[in-house]
Amino acid sequence: MLDSTYSLYKLIILYMLKKVSFPLTSTQISDLIISQKYTSYFHLQEVLHEMETSNLLTTYSKNHMTYYKITDAGLQTIEYFKNEISPEIRKEISGYLDLHSYQMRSEASTFAEYYKDGDSDYIVSCVAREGNQTLIELKLTVPTKSAAETLAENWKRKSQETYEAIMKILM
């Protein structure tokens, strides 16, 4: 039996990370946990920090986002304690992931970042990946920070369309 609700939150997060084949952002984890009203954002942050400290998950940052990935210790933990998560909660998690997995995978595989190049221009690096393979990577030079921000934001929404158009032009 679980000794606290925090343990249940940890198991929910581990279960979620085990069910997907890609790392999840803190926002993606928060969306599920908070939309189902399992706990508050602040409790969730405490639990995530504790899970990282106890090596149940690892984190890395990219493009101003924190990504979470389950560790071997996390996999062992969820295998051992998965029956402590009620069938109703498992069903809610599976339903949420079924409904949002395409969007979540897309968010994890499409990103853009920008940086200042010298004194005046900005370089915008746009990448779309599928699994471990890079589908397309573009580096564009723009004159202003505002243009770089716009380009980076638009890439997130239009990367698939852009990739298809480039392929059509080049093929």
Rank of each mutant, 00 (worst) to 15 (best):
L2Y: 05
D3F: 08
D3A: 10
T5M: 12
Y6P: 00
Y6M: 08
S7Y: 01
L8T: 03
L8P: 03
L8C: 04
L8R: 15
L8V: 00
Y9N: 07
Y9E: 07
Y9Q: 05
I13C: 10
L14Q: 09
L14N: 05
Y15M: 06
M16A: 12
K19E: 13
V20W: 02
V20C: 05
S21N: 14
P23R: 09
P23M: 02
S26L: 05
Q28G: 09
I29T: 08
I29E: 07
S30P: 00
S30C: 02
D31C: 05
D31V: 02
I33F: 10
S35H: 03
S35I: 02
S35C: 08
S35N: 13
Q36C: 07
Y38R: 10
Y38T: 03
T39K: 04
S40T: 15
Y41T: 09
F42E: 12
L44A: 08
Q45M: 14
E46K: 15
V47D: 10
H49E: 15
E52V: 04
N55M: 07
L56M: 13
L57F: 02
S61Q: 09
S61M: 07
K62D: 04
K62A: 13
N63S: 11
M65T: 05
M65K: 15
M65R: 14
Y67N: 04
K69Y: 00
T71P: 03
D72A: 10
D72G: 07
A73R: 09
G74A: 07
L75V: 02
T77Y: 03
I78Y: 01
E79R: 10
E79Q: 11
Y80R: 13
F81C: 06
F81H: 08
K82W: 02
S86N: 02
P87V: 05
E88L: 10
E88C: 01
E88W: 00
I89H: 12
I89T: 15
R90M: 08
E92H: 04
I93G: 06
I93H: 07
S94H: 06
L97I: 15
L97M: 09
D98C: 00
S101R: 14
Y102D: 12
Y102M: 08
Y102I: 06
Q103S: 12
R105D: 00
S106C: 01
S106K: 15
A108M: 11
S109F: 12
T110C: 10
E113V: 11
E113H: 08
E113R: 12
Y114T: 03
Y114D: 05
Y114S: 09
Y115K: 13
K116A: 09
K116Y: 04
G118N: 09
Y122D: 06
I123Y: 07
I123K: 14
V124K: 12
S125N: 10
C126K: 12
R129I: 05
R129M: 15
E130C: 08
G131N: 08
I136L: 15
E137S: 14
L138G: 07
T141G: 05
P143C: 03
A147P: 00
A147N: 11
A147D: 15
A148S: 08
L151K: 08
E153F: 00
K156D: 01
K156P: 01
K156R: 14
S159D: 14
E161P: 01
E161C: 04
T162C: 10
E164L: 15
E164F: 03
E164H: 15
A165S: 15
I166M: 12
I166H: 12
I166E: 09
M167R: 14
K168N: 11
I169Y: 05
L170Y: 13
